[in-house]
Nucleic acid binder design. Sequence first.
DNA 1: TGACTTCTTGCAAATCATTCTCATAATCAA
DNA 2: TTGATTATGAGAATGATTTGCAAGAAGTCA
Lengths: 141, 141
Amino acid sequence: MNEADEKVGELEEALRARGVRMTRQRAALLTVLANAEDHPDANELHRRAREIDPSVSLATVYRTLSLLQDQSVVQRHVFEGAPARFETADAPHHDHIIDLDTGDVIEFCSDRIERLQAEIAAEHGYEVVHHRMELYCRKKG
Amino acid sequence: MNEADEKVGELEEALRARGVRMTRQRAALLTVLANAEDHPDANELHRRAREIDPSVSLATVYRTLSLLQDQSVVQRHVFEGAPARFETADAPHHDHIIDLDTGDVIEFCSDRIERLQAEIAAEHGYEVVHHRMELYCRKKG
DNA sequence: TGACTTCTTGCAAATCATTCTCATAATCAA
DNA sequence: TTGATTATGAGAATGATTTGCAAGAAGTCA
Ligand SMILES: [Mn+2]
Ligand SMILES: [Mn+2]
Ligand SMILES: [Zn+2]
Ligand SMILES: [Zn+2]
């Protein structure tokens, strides 16, 4: 709650510096995002934001998420057969394992895979702008 | 045109054997799919199927695609910000490079990445049921 | 602290891909 | 052919996301 609050302050500053107006609803959503340890979807973010400011509408949640995505503050992920999920973009790059039974999302990163991806793209005359890698898994045993 | 027609015949047989009724519209869609060398979406498949049988409706295209997916005859891919795309499932497993400028889709497969993915899942106590890997790229130079 | 300009918001209606409902038509085994 | 079962077309319904618009806030500068 301390680290996250600090994060919120920094984000508000950074955004203001970039000419983004800091409204009540944007601040609420930033707080929710900074405190989220999971990968909530727009509805869940709306639910959490309302706890801080009951006036926040779902439309504004979507609008703010787009804004924050443009500002590289959040990342949007669309996993199979589910609405988009969001997380702050401050963590280093990683990909996801999705537990097919529980819906749990686990993060991982493999430098070797990242390197191989770049190699493969290069072999085809391309450079990777961004990529998506999701492992849909089931517990072993 | 020969190879594809052969493929259609085999598919029709295989499906009939599994108790699937072979209707005019299903045959049309199978022909379209067997002849497709790209990754068309439902609308494009509908357009092509109508050239064979003008009565085919979009609803039936969707219904048939679901059926064929259940029968492991087609695979559905949902790339970023676009409707689902389809391809026959007869080719061996591969992943995709998407050209951000042209929309072109290029296929590739890396055994090393596939192996690493399995390893990573295992490290977390999981086994990969299926995965998704897409490289969104731009031409180099 | 106003007054002003420019952006934001909430609400409801619009989109868009996909799915579903239902009355009618087609498949296929007998 | 017949009959039981399943598929189809048309259009309405869905669900996530976006948008238009009138009303409300933010930031700026006196
Ligand atoms: Mn993550
Ligand atoms: Mn492919
Ligand atoms: Zn990665
Ligand atoms: Zn793969």
